[in-house]
Write a protein that binds this DNA or RNA. Structure first.
Lengths: 127, 127
DNA sequence: TCTAAAGTAGTAATTATTACTACTTACAAT
DNA sequence: ATTGTAAGTAGTAATAATTACTACTTTAGA
C-alpha cells in the first residue's frame, strides 16, 4: 500500500475510537480533519485496511457494518436496545477455527461471531 | 399470524432447499408458483418467519443474507471460492450463550457465527 | 526530474431492502 | 351466510449502504 494521508487519518480514527463505528460515522469524523474527503474514499480505505489485516469488520444483524481496531481475540455484543456494540472478553472461543477444521473437511480462515442481547446499562434501565 | 398462501409457499420453499438461499433466490423460485408475487412480500414474510422463529437468517460477510429452515444447533461455513454456504455440525458452541452470560454482565439472546474458508470441493480443485 | 502506478474527489450507478397506497383476503362475531 | 376489520398483497416509489466511473493528483522508485 502506497502512503496516503486520507488512509492514515481513517486508520487513526478507527484506532482511537472504542465505539465500533460504522463507515458513515468514520466519514463524518474524518471530515473534520479532511473537509473534502469523499465517502467513497472512506469505504475503499476501510475495506483495504480490512484486507491487509490492520482492522476488523464486524457484521451486525439488521444494521450496518462496524469497524474495530482491536485485533486481539475477542467477541462482540450487539445491544438490541441501544444499538451499541460492546466487547466481550472470553477465552471460550480460543482456537475454535482449528477445532472446527479438525472436525470437518473445510479449511477455516476466520470466523465472525456476534452475540445479540441486552447490555448492562439497558438492562438496569428496564428494571 | 393469519394464513396466507404467499407465506406458505415461501416457507415451503425455504424448507425444501438446502442451499441457504438469499431473499432474491427465494423470490425467483416462488415466482414459478405465484407468478405475480411481489419481492416486497417475500422480504416481509421472510422477516416475519424469522421473528416467529420458524426460520433462521444467516449473515454473510460481504454478501447478502441467507435463510435456513434448519433450527437445530449448527454453524455455517461460507466458502470464499464458490460463494456457497455449508452446514457445520459441531457441539463446540453448545450452550455458549449461557457461558458468555455468566462471564459478562450482558443478557445474551442469541448469536450469529459464520466461518469463512474453503469448502472441500474447492480445496480439491485448487490442488 | 520523470514516470507509472496508486490514490482521490465528485458524481453516478447499483444493490439490497423497506415504505407507501389502494385493493384483497382471512376469519371471528354476529 | 353476512359482515367488519385487521392482516396481507401487488405494484411502485423511496431509502440506505455501498460500489463504479472519470478525470485529476500524489507517491515513490528509476
Amino acid at each position: 500500500m502506497k502512503y496516503s494521508r486520507q488512509r492514515e487519518v481513517i486508520l487513526e480514527e478507527v484506532k482511537f475510537r472504542y465505539d465500533h463505528p460504522t463507515a458513515d460515522m468514520i466519514y463524518h469524523s474524518v471530515l473534520e480533519k479532511i473537509p473534502n474527503i469523499s465517502l467513497g474514499t472512506v469505504y475503499r480505505n476501510l475495506n483495504q485496511l480490512v484486507e491487509h489485516g490492520l482492522i476488523r469488520k464486524i457484521l451486525i444483524p439488521d444494521d450496518s457494518d462496524r469497524f474495530d481496531f482491536n485485533l486481539k481475540n475477542h467477541q462482540h455484543l450487539y445491544c438490541t436496545c441501544c444499538k451499541q456494540v460492546f466487547d466481550i472478553e472470553s477465552n471460550v472461543l480460543k482456537g475454535i477455527d482449528k477445532v472446527i477444521e479438525k472436525e470437518t473437511n473445510y479449511i477455516i480462515l476466520s470466523h465472525e461471531i456476534v452475540f445479540t442481547g441486552i447490555c448492562e446499562a439497558c438492562n438496569r434501565k428496564k428494571v
